[in-house]
Nucleic acid binder design. Structure first.
Lengths: 189, 189
DNA sequence: GTAATTTATTGACATTTGTCAATCTTTTTA
DNA sequence: TAAAAAGATTGACAAATGTCAATAAATTAC
């Protein structure tokens, strides 16, 4: 098993060496360049990605060519185009790497297999989904209760590394604002 | 077991009569009036609510007294102040009934008990959480990609009953807009 | 290393949305 | 049923944010 995945699982679940091997085999390594498309809009998401190194972006594209970032996934985290992956339906969103990345891919079938063959895996996974869901609830609240400036400040406080690492236009559409507005917010202290 | 709950579980899980009794006992009935507070902001959510009849509102209050609706929960659905319930931390949000309601309450400890004693319960619950999470992702997307009018039209199409049943000001803050703006959107075609 | 491309900033202006206040309507309660 | 409370609408105006265009800066690719 990849040491980064092992670290991720530490404290979340205890695996026998046999189980560890099974889990390790289910996560297939993938090394990508920057700006590589992992999932095209319209295709069905087959994998969840664990990010060992690099960064993924799940984003929407509209008819007129504009893009909106639904999620960003950094080192030590898992993610995918969740609705498509769970419902096994064509994805509204696409997935791309924002940096050269090292990934571990878990297929939907292997995911089911882990549920069945590794006691405790489903509980661990459920708890992970619960936390992701909570994060998304908090993001919804940020849209309901905060203006653009407040959302930016909040992001700056919670994920300062995001701002340094990613182009501002990605941050802007993650926040749901135009890149010009973000640029002005930054200078406006 | 309450017939509404039985109907909810139908097709999701198969229970022995003994298990059915256990589940039925875990969900405690509660009859409320309109505008009754089920959870105060600052308290920790102890229950998930299944709505047999009526409607719940999970909402945020700010210092200046304004309110924002985080979630609305109608008949045949379950919900609570999710972050507080899962993390067992003081809730940012409060819960109130918007109508006289019939509820079934599941405590956190009984929830754990069902996980342990009813095979398949956790799987069913996980799938429910996945769907709720998907719904919240779609709501995030609505904030990133749509303006107020588009969000209103979308809600009107997906949940027309909500608009008829609830005061417009509740709808407005669910959409993240002022009640005046909503009022204008409605007349504007 | 330089050209090409992408990204960021800034200004001018348009549009959307919010706020406040007044009034009208509906619903609730006594 | 009448009074009171809550909710909805509308106008006037302010504030926030978007759009378009020009330019500057940074990054990427050859």
């Amino acid at each position: 098993m990849h040491p980064a995945l092992k670290k991720y699982l530490e404290g979340k679940i205890i695996l026998s060496s046999q189980q560890e091997q099974l889990v390790g085999n289910c996560f297939k390594p993938l090394v990508t360049k920057r700006n590589q498309i992992l999932l095209q809009k319209g295709n069905t998401a087959k994998y969840i990605y664990f990010v060992v190194k690099g960064c993924l972006r799940v984003f929407l594209t509209t008819e007129d060519g504009s893009e909106s970032t639904r999620f960003l996934i950094f080192e030590g985290r898992m993610g995918t185009a969740f609705p498509s992956f769970i419902l096994q339906q064509p994805s509204q969103a696409a997935i791309q790497t924002l940096e050269a990345s090292h990934l571990l891919m878990l297929s939907n079938t292997d995911r089911q297999r882990l549920y069945q063959e590794v006691p405790g895996w489903e509980t661990m996974d459920r708890k992970g989904i619960e936390l992701d869901y909570i994060a998304s609830i908090e993001r919804i609240e940020s849209f309901i209760t905060m203006d653009a400036k407040a959302r930016y400040d909040s992001l700056m406080q919670q994920h300062p590394q995001m701002l340094q690492r990613l182009p501002a236009k990605i941050i802007a559409d993650y926040l749901g604002i135009s890149k010009e507005t973000l640029s002005r917010l930054k200078s406006k202290r």
